[in-house]
Design a protein around this nucleic acid. Structure first.
Length: 225
DNA sequence: ACATTAACCCACA
DNA sequence: TGTGGGTTAATGT
């Protein structure tokens, strides 16, 4: 068989525990697809029979609420996508859109389930991931309702810096109105607070280029709301 | 909400 | 292949 899946992060962190026949099963039932930024990877409301593994890139998960589009989270490779929506319901409960150019691997749900059944380590790894993700969602939920915009925006900037880009200097991958939809604020508040941060010397901003100048203070703002 | 700017597409040379 | 114009989305106030 090709060794695409062995090197592929599809089986990341569990490759050692997957038996050859299981790898082969994945190998014969997957498809690698590239997406340009802005492309839709999963559409809310559509029937789905695939689990998706994000190999490269950055995506946003979002749902259309009663009033507007709500961005739930940004998530970078490598990670599984669409587990809750594919295992929990036949119809996708949310959308996933590429924020940067991305590469994903589609895996048939039945094959995925079979590997889950056959491989304990793999299943517990998946449960761990889902649990972490749920805890993260709870934390964000509390933050979103209780923090003020400056605190939430500080969170976002720190998230970009520490988790997503691992750098104090980065290019905002999403528009300001997207950030607004994400942290539950209007785009003009985002804009206002961003320039406020800039004049206060917390960050430097040219267009979408951001350089973090005072991370300690930013963390303070993040903690104190 | 309005003014300005940047990005994009398309026709045309 | 490059340029002008027109349109739309993003941004700043």
């Amino acid at each position: 068989m090709k060794n695409e899946c062995i090197d592929c992060a599809c089986v990341m962190k569990s490759s050692s525990t997957l038996k050859n026949c299981q790898l082969e099963m994945l190998e014969n039932n997957h498809a690698v697809v590239k997406f340009r930024k802005g492309d839709s990877i999963i559409k809310q409301g559509v029937f789905s029979t695939n689990v998706i593994f994000l190999r490269k890139g950055l995506v946003k998960i979002h749902i259309t609420g009663p009033y507007r589009e709500q961005i739930v989270r940004l998530i970078k490779a490598p990670t599984y996508l669409g587990l809750p929506t594919t295992l929990g319901d036949k119809i996708n409960q949310y959308s996933v859109t590429a924020v940067l150019d991305s590469e994903v691997c589609f895996i048939d749900i039945e094959v995925f389930k079979r590997v889950l059944e056959e491989n304990r380590d793999f299943s517990s790894y998946i449960i761990m991931e889902l649990s972490k993700s749920e805890l993260e969602a709870y934390r964000r939920c509390a933050n979103r309702t209780q923090k003020q915009t400056r605190g939430k925006l500080a969170d976002v900037l720190l998230d970009f810096s520490d988790t997503i880009f691992n750098s104090d200097e980065f290019v905002l991958p999403v528009s300001q109105s997207d950030i607004g939809n994400w942290v539950d604020a209007g785009r003009e508040s985002i804009n206002r607070v961003l320039s406020e941060f800039a004049t206060d010397g917390l960050i430097e901003m040219t267009g979408r280029n951001v350089k973090i100048r005072d991370k300690k203070l930013l963390k303070m703002i993040s903690q104190n709301g």
